[in-house]
């Protein structure tokens, strides 16, 4: 887990500082120097338009990671809000939200993500909307179940008997106790969303060329990868590394935050 955190932090730092660290601009075309192999000027070589692969990887990581982070955070916020409301107040609020959650969980997420992103047209915004719509229900379900469990925990009832108000119970006790499971869920989901964004971009539904994005780069490389396999290998390994690190961290967090009675925070 320590390794995963270090690697991920390094990649993220590198990508977020893209304007400072990338040796070339991601869209600097040089038709005189196409598909060249690794050299001193271009550490990983250049692509079919003579653009520096390393720079494009760094800029591409920036797009992928930022979009994945923002999308997952928005999903989380929506799920947290609906789930906590449903779980803590119950009644009609709960019935309504529970119905929506059941509806969205009863539908095939990937197909819907594709259809929604496809209908809205290519671009980061449609990916964002498609992912949020098809992913929030999982968050809401887990948060609701956890809130319900906490609300009915004997110590919460004890606090009510001591005279603690709803605000105090929610803010000081329930929300801090929710953070653990939510963090685990966030991390595990982030891994899946990184993959989904890359896949949608690969299909041509996400960021458009000449933007650098790992999925887009793999698609660009399809025509040339027999001669220059590194064009496909490098962005693929980047996605794999980021997703693996995120998943490793999620697993590690889950083990670490498991309740003392061995009950795992999430299935």
């Amino acid at each position: 887990m320590k390794v995963a955190v270090t690697v991920l932090a390094a990649i993220a730092a590198l990508c977020l500082a893209a304007p400072l660290v990338a040796p070339y601009a991601p869209d600097a075309i040089d038709m005189t120097d196409r598909l060249s192999g690794p050299s001193f000027e271009h550490w990983l070589g250049t692509d079919h338009l003579g653009r520096d692969l390393l720079s494009r990887l760094i800029w591409g990581g920036r797009s992928t990671i930022l979009l994945a982070l923002i999308t997952t955070l928005a999903t989380l916020a929506l799920g947290l809000l609906t789930g906590a409301l449903a779980g803590y107040f119950g009644g009609l609020v709960d019935d309504g939200i529970e119905g929506l959650v059941l509806l969205f969980q009863g539908l095939p997420g990937l197909s819907f993500m594709l259809a929604i992103a496809g209908t809205l047209g290519p671009g980061a915004l449609s990916i964002f909307i498609a992912v949020v719509i098809t992913s929030w229900a999982d968050f809401a379900r887990v948060v609701r179940a956890e809130t319900l469990r906490l609300r009915e925990a004997p110590w919460v009832e004890g606090l009510r008997a001591l005279g603690a108000g709803h605000g105090r119970v929610l803010a000081l006790h329930i929300v801090p106790n929710l953070l653990g499971p939510v963090l685990v869920l966030f991390t595990l989901r982030l891994g899946r969303i990184v993959l989904a964004i890359a896949a949608l971009s690969f299909l041509g539904l996400g960021l458009q060329p000449p933007n650098a994005e790992w999925g887009v780069m793999i698609n660009d490389a399809r025509a040339y990868y027999r001669g220059a396999p590194i064009l496909m290998l490098a962005p693929g390994l980047c996605i794999l590394t980021v997703a693996l690190c995120v998943n490793l961290i999620g697993d590690g967090l889950r083990d670490r935050l498991a309740e003392p009675d061995g009950r795992e925070v999430l299935p």
Partner: peptide
């Protein structure tokens, strides 16, 4: 809530973990 207090059955779940 100051006049009457409760001591519950499960001490291990009486406090915020």
């Amino acid at each position: 809530s100051r006049h009457a207090q409760l001591l519950s059955q499960h001490p291990e779940t009486a406090f915020d973990p």
